[in-house]
Measured scan of single mutants.
Amino acid sequence: HNLTITQGKLFFHYNPKLCLSEIHKMEEVSGTKGRQERNDIALKTNGDQASCENELLKFSYIRTSFDKILLRWEPYWPPDFRDLLGFMLFYKEAPYQNVTEFDGQDACGSNSWTVVDIDPPLRSNDPKSQNHPGWLMRGLKPWTQYAIFVKTLVTFSDERRTYGAKSDIIYVQTDATNPSVPLDPISVSNSSSQIILKWKPPSDPNGNITHYLVFWERQAEDSELFELDYCLKGLKLPSRTWSPPFESEDSQKHNQSEYEDSAGECCSCPKTDSQILKELEESSFRKTFEDYLHNVVFVPRKTSSGTGAEDPRPSRKRRSLGDVGNVTVAVPTVAAFPNTSSTSVPTSPEEHRPFEKVVNKESLVISGLRHFTGYRIELQACNQDTPEERCSVAAYVSARTMPEAKADDIVGPVTHEIFENNVVHLMWQEPKEPNGLIVLYEVSYRRYGDEELHLCVSRKHFALERGCRLRGLSPGNYSVRIRATSLAGNGSWTEPTYFYVTDYLDVPSNIA
């Protein structure tokens, strides 16, 4: 807008934040220059609390790290170098490059900038070799853009010569660093050979998330399962459950009422301010606690030095998902009996873990797994792929695949051998790939016309006998059925096997 004052003059007093240069501009645009008398524009009460600059400061050096910015700028000295009290560095987070010096300023003089007072450097006698002032900004957020400017702080001049310097606002972004852990990993099994893994992005990506790394490792069953005799009275049979499938998407929606109208769909109840505040506090606490764990609990591995020492970490090797089922080394339970199943799973520490690289999504279907087997899954978020990966501390989750139908069934015939004193040795093959492992066998036998009897055969007993022995049988026709019990439950009964026990007292003698 054009402003013209045809008559009258300007009068400025007691404006401590208004620089004289701005008042002189007002004289020019209003056409009143030359009308004012000496005392109409006070030299001592206008701009006496402001830094009124008329020179431009330029930054000469900028260096960044993930949490620091090192700045240096060209030296500046007023005509009387004693008038320079120091520099004021202003900075704040700036997602967009549209910041002005006066953003967030209120009537009390406060604003949204963080201000650092910096002492002037030592003055050199040689004007050509003056030290460049600077400042190291610490405690910054990774991968965050900051708006920065600097200006001088000078003393009051009796001659009211307006001098000083100020830089333009520059924008500097800190470097990326390792992201925080992925949030809320959930693993479920939808079949006997697959596990579905879902997660949420890290709360602090500290860069642009480029991919996720998912490692999985087959877990050995508890050692007590191999040692305890679950045929003993009072000892509860062990059981394991597989990871249940995901709930429906509708039930997972946030901010939804727990109660549904019987007449149909209901609208979600909005969260109160107290609920939102509580969630923010919980989120802040979780982030602080995660940072504490990362800094205190997890110790970084030592990389190899120039002395030739090897990095103890196993090298990563990509495998196809079809090879995942046989990740671990199978060892027989008892070496003397080769027909026992290889369900003991000690994992070799030198073995390469299978892994998958996930790009542009937060889910993965891990296939080719062994049925009813526990897996430990390790999830890392990465925001750099080359020249070397920059990934987060791992988040861990466990899951067990679903049982395989008929995996616990005894394959092959049940054979028998009759000894003296009416002892019958029953023999059968253990299931080759049971659900988890076989903890015991149930032997059901009966003599024709009598009630059915049951015998429990422990895992250890089966390994020693290759089956079991029935003792003290009365003469007669017998039928026997056997079924295995694994961590997933009972298998199917075998087809009945028949044998006849004679009275050993009636056996004919070869003595003449």
Rank of each mutant, 00 (worst) to 15 (best):
H416Y: 12
V397Y: 10
S274E: 05
G467S: 07
D250E: 13
N339G: 08
V443H: 00
E279C: 01
G234Q: 07
M402N: 02
C456K: 04
R471S: 07
P387Q: 13
A395Q: 14
L369E: 02
S458V: 06
S492C: 07
F215Y: 14
Q429Y: 13
G264D: 15
L453S: 06
D291H: 08
F462A: 07
K357L: 15
F298S: 02
F289A: 03
L440M: 08
E388Y: 15
A463Y: 09
G412D: 11
W493Y: 13
D409A: 05
N295C: 03
R286L: 02
Y396H: 15
Y396C: 03
S223C: 12
V457I: 11
D273I: 15
P346I: 09
F355N: 11
L473K: 02
D229H: 03
T307V: 09
L379K: 00
F285A: 08
A263Y: 15
K357N: 07
P338C: 09
E362W: 13
F298A: 09
K432F: 08
T307S: 12
E442F: 15
K361T: 11
F289D: 03
L321F: 06
T494E: 00
N255S: 06
A394I: 15
P434M: 08
G436W: 07
R469F: 13
A336W: 06
T494P: 01
N255L: 03
E442Y: 14
N477R: 12
Y230P: 02
E227D: 07
V439P: 09
V296K: 15
L228G: 07
S342F: 13
E451M: 14
G412P: 11
K361Q: 10
N208Q: 15
N477C: 13
P245Y: 15
V327S: 12
S203G: 09
L487G: 08
R318N: 09
E362Y: 10
E378W: 07
V297C: 02
M402T: 05
S367Q: 08
T347K: 07
P431R: 01
C456S: 08
D204V: 13
H425C: 06
E389L: 11
V393G: 05
E442K: 10
Y230R: 04
E389G: 07
W216H: 05
L464K: 13
F215V: 14
P403W: 06
N206W: 05
E217Q: 15
I418S: 11
E420D: 08
A399R: 15
S315Y: 08
S251N: 07
E221H: 15
G234V: 08
D222V: 09
P508R: 15
V358F: 11
S243C: 12
K233L: 13
V439T: 09
S341M: 13
A336C: 14
T373P: 02
S474L: 13
E279F: 03
S251Y: 06
S243R: 15
C267G: 03
K432Q: 05
E221K: 15
A381V: 06
F462N: 11
E356P: 07
G264F: 03
G472A: 13
T386V: 01
V423G: 14
V296L: 03
E404M: 14
G325I: 08
S479E: 15
E224L: 13
A399I: 06
A335S: 08
S344V: 06
K287E: 01
T303N: 15
G306D: 12
C266A: 09
E351A: 10
K287Q: 06
N421V: 08
L470Q: 01
K302Y: 07
E249W: 07
T343H: 11
N339Y: 10
E281W: 05
S243V: 08
R319K: 15
G467D: 01
R353D: 15
L453D: 08
W242G: 04
F337R: 13
P300S: 05
R313C: 13
P245S: 10
I482K: 04
A395H: 14
S444V: 14
E279P: 06
V299Y: 03
N326R: 14
L321Y: 11
E362Q: 13
V397G: 15
P300G: 05
M427H: 15
S344I: 05
D261V: 11
R483G: 01
E356T: 14
P403G: 03
S474D: 04
E247N: 14
E247K: 06
Y212F: 14
F298H: 01
K432E: 07
T343L: 11
S474H: 07
S392M: 03
K361R: 05
Q275A: 07
S305A: 09
T241P: 14
A336Q: 03
G207R: 10
E389C: 13
Y230N: 05
T241L: 10
S283Q: 14
T502R: 12
E495H: 11
Y259L: 08
R370L: 14
E420K: 14
S203E: 07
K317T: 08
S251H: 14
V443F: 00
T497K: 06
Y375V: 15
V424T: 05
L464D: 06
Y375N: 00
L470F: 08
F462V: 08
H461A: 07
K271H: 05
A394T: 11
S344F: 05
P496F: 14
G234N: 04
I410P: 07
G322H: 13
I209D: 07
N383Q: 07
Q256R: 07
F289G: 02
Q256V: 12
S248Q: 15
Y500I: 12
T485G: 06
H211K: 06
L213H: 06
T288S: 04
S203Q: 06
D506S: 13
D222P: 06
N422F: 15
Y445Q: 04
